[in-house]
Amino acid sequence: MNILEQLLTEAMQIALTALAAPLFVGWVRMLKCWSQGRRAPGILQPYRNLLKLFSKDILLAENASWVFRATPYVVFGTILMAGSVIPVISSELPLSASADIIALVALFGIARFFTALAGMDVGTSFGGMGSSREMMIASLAEPAVLMTAFTVSLFSHSTSLSVIVKYVQGLSFFLSPSMAFVFFAFILIMLAETGRVPVDNPVTHLELTMIHEGMILEYSGRHLALMEWAGMMKLFVFSSLGIALFSPWGIASDVAGVPFALLLVALKLTAIGVIVVLIETGMAKMRIFRVPEFLGTAFLLATLGMLSHFMLE
């Protein structure tokens, strides 16, 4: 691919992450409404919410410092950056070389770090509680994340995402127990990291149960819009990561294949939305101190994946 084509695919990848994320969340919310027997507000509702928030004035807490005001921008920037390195429409993504899986996780780490600080900045108990719990969940999820990355890299001898994508695409038939385990581990991690049921509830504003919502409780106007948008992108990015690692078939290797790849990605995301909603509807939110066990299971699965790679493959 020449430079121009590379830039084009990269621009499309970034645009996809930023613009399709609300659509994906709209789809998930719509499914959720249906599964609960309610009438859905339409798949475009997240866009309308964002537009509304962008046009509103900002109510800023008296005590808020520059950290609080800078956080939405930093979070938005890092998550968009994370989205731009995952080769989900083309495996020849130029920015993909600038971060491997571990660096990608660290990008989420920056966003989390600043969100947690923003939670503590205003000086209310909700924010602090959210920050404390968020950091706890993140730290317990991290060993599972690393073990997942480790197992995936055992196959492809690489942690670079486009190499992994190309490697998995090259396999004709494969029935690998370790990939199966890691896949389940990944789903658990994804639920925890993107703040879905059973770990956190994205729609709750009940004081004692919120984690992510607790941290961003004081945001309003465009700050809130950016935080919400970043949250949607995070779900989207994790889903694309899942696609890249476990079902990369159809990801294009040149510009001509991109439209078809886009179609496939849309189909896969539709399916992921169904899975997420099925899990969310089927489970109740856990007590906060059951979360360690949940993430321990994820770690165990990933570890079994690693072990069975050595033992059975």
């Binding site: 038939f173 494969f174 029935l175 690998s176 127990p177 370790s178 199966a180 385990f181 299971t297 165990l300 699965l301 079994l304 069975s308 059975l312 493959e313």
Partner: peptide, 24 residues
């Protein structure tokens, strides 16, 4: 080849069920 893969796959699931017994 495929039967080896299948057998290994099942072995992995047997291992998984053993852990599931511990976790349940």
């Amino acid at each position: 080849g495929i039967s080896i893969q299948l057998n290994n796959f099942l072995a992995a699931f047997i291992l998984l069920t053993s852990f599931a017994l511990l976790a349940q």
